[in-house]
Design a protein around this nucleic acid. Structure first.
Lengths: 212, 212
DNA sequence: TCCTCGATCTAACGTAAGTTAGAATCTAAC
DNA sequence: GTTAGATTCTAACTTACGTTAGATCGAGGA
């Protein structure tokens, strides 16, 4: 059994730092995210993960009790990464930022994480509907927490009169999140920069939700 | 071997009409769509399909040579249903409909099919990324055909000067399609009517893409 | 240098699920 | 009512894959 079960990013934050065992664990986790995002929950084979991580399949059992636990951790990490990055981005804004500046920032942060740290968040997004019941339940808790952030953003915008009150707030919020979550399906770094996509999305969303 | 391999909707169009064997085939296909949309490509077990269709698993082999062929047909049907319904809806519009009226109609048609005939289109949408390579290739052809329809809609709107030219047309198009494809993840008939969602979406999209 | 223990491997097991074989049943024509 | 063909079933086979057991390798301290 390894001494530390949780990944501990070391001082310099580089993925190659830390104890060798911790690095192997990270490699397997990242490999699992990659395979999971492409093959789906049931289609993710331990052998494929192992091949990407350059280990033998049974090595997985040194770090996780079962395949399900490894995959569940991928989903959790993917969810938390999104939540934390968005919250941190919002916290970095000046206190007097307008409601729509905050929404712009959240859009940018969400796209950054799903398009750049894409394997983990993609795995979480694409497989949400396929999770086994027990894991799905935990996932819903995290999802609600993230939804609350966006609900707050939209409510603030409505209260500030910056957003049209003539559309259902929930529907509008989910339309936006849908557009964001779908971005990994079509965006390709070679066809346009991330910054361009962010700017376009901010443009369209701002116009779509702003009163005339 | 059954005499007819392709589903032939009979005069009244009801799912219980036609030869008994054809009805069984339809039942299995619909069951496959239901399971596939929830469990993912690899997670869709023949036994689960059979249970929903009220048949034993080997009965599937009377109609399809292998599990893959059944699932591939579900994806094809889901894709074609969307394409055909949108194209038919557009064709029903008067010739003098404005570019944005046509986009509104396409939005309504797309949402209708993914939210109502949801099992087939959901199966196609959610599993696009997980398809085996050979099937994925065929799927991309259909996907391109559908993308062409939307590309045309957007181009017409730009040409008519109804749509802002200051955003990347492709990105805007994909953002809208993302919002539409994501709707099944959150829409629930008990929380609001389909008509309301359609109206809200049309509102937001029209504002989002229209020049000031 | 040797010993210990952490880390990973090779080999084997058990089971779930797709598939096949062949029997049983049902339908429709004569 | 009988028969032929269509349809569906039960039972068995096969393979893939998660998992376990136990051996092996490697690094760090005595």
């Amino acid at each position: 059994m390894p001494r530390e079960r949780t990944a501990r990013p070391s001082a310099d934050g580089s993925p190659t730092s830390g104890r060798k065992s911790a690095r192997t664990r990270e490699r397997i986790l990242a490999a699992a995210a990659q395979v999971l995002s492409r093959k789906g929950w049931a289609g993710t084979r331990l052998v494929d993960i192992a091949e990407v991580a350059e280990v033998q399949a049974p090595a997985v059992y040194y770090y996780w009790p079962a395949r399900e636990d490894l995959l569940a951790e991928v989903v959790t990490v993917g969810q938390q990464a999104t939540l934390e990055h968005v919250v941190a981005s919002l916290a970095a804004l000046p206190d007097d930022a307008s409601a729509f500046d905050r929404i712009d920032r959240a859009i940018a942060a969400h796209l950054e994480v799903v398009l750049r740290r894409s394997e983990f968040s993609l795995a979480a997004i694409r497989n949400a509907a396929q999770l086994p019941a027990d894991i799905r339940e935990r996932q819903l808790v995290g999802q609600r927490a993230y939804a609350d952030v966006w609900r707050g953003l939209v409510e603030d915008a409505v209260a500030a009169g910056e957003l049209t009150a003539d559309v259902d707030a929930r529907a509008a919020r989910m339309l936006v999140l849908g557009a964001l979550n779908w971005a990994p399906e079509w965006w390709n770094p070679e066809r346009g920069s991330l910054e361009d996509v962010v700017a376009t999305t901010q443009h369209v969303v701002r116009r779509g939700l702003t009163r005339r």
